[in-house]
Design a protein around this nucleic acid. Structure first.
Lengths: 111, 111
DNA sequence: TGACAATATGTCAAATATGACATAATGTCA
DNA sequence: TGACATTATGTCATATTTGACATATTGTCA
């Protein structure tokens, strides 16, 4: 799988409908950077939840949300903000340092 | 100025009305962490804009926003999201790595 | 001091995010 | 396979965020 295809797959997972390569390339650098950052936080959240052996429903209760919203958080859905992801990570006891480190990660060494 | 008072002043600057020390202490750890993170991004944005010798109005045009919103971004106002700050930083050419590093900073070595 | 530039604050209509619900899809294990 | 748990998707009313405007405040320089 090419680098470009891998990236595209990730972006599609976030809710972006990428009809074709041209549309994909139509995304600006800023948009791609934003989506990638969001996906990093989403992944960090999911990994942490799994490490704690919590279901999405368990975790939803803890942050006064719902299972469906947690699912959307973890897939980086269009409808979830970075604010929500950050707040959720803090609720799991993650530190700013941890978040900063996760953001700094490149694809090759992502958690 | 005590450490606590300094923190309080920063938080007040973000739009939080901190009536007294008790109220301040009433903020949960997560809330404080969120506000501090937001303020780091706000500061990073302002520093970068100044480094580029742009006025708030100049920068506002570049990101299709308004001077007043830029002012709110830079003071970490309640009404601005981390999403908006992150998108604005990307618009200034900042990388994820830069953002990650800024978030990782502790108070003592903040930009 | 006053004139002007730059930044901050208050407000609001429109846009976007949120929790919740229903239900679909996927996974697991007997 | 089927029963059950878990996760994903679609939708919606409510809540929050956004750009914009007016106006206030602060800064600078003659």
């Amino acid at each position: 799988m090419s680098m470009k295809a891998a990236k595209r797959k990730k972006l599609e997972a976030t809710g972006w409908k990428v009809g074709n390569a041209a549309d994909f390339l139509g995304l600006s650098k800023e948009e791609v950077a934003y989506l990638e950052l969001k996906l990093k936080l989403a992944t960090q959240l999911k990994n942490l939840r799994l490490k704690r052996h919590l279901t999405q429903s368990d975790f939803a209760k803890r942050i006064d949300s719902s299972q469906s919203r947690v699912a959307k958080m973890e897939t980086g859905d269009r409808s979830v903000s970075i604010d929500l992801l950050v707040k959720s990570l803090f609720a799991l006891g993650v530190t700013s340092k941890d978040i900063g480190k996760a953001i700094t990660q490149t694809k090759s060494n992502a958690a």
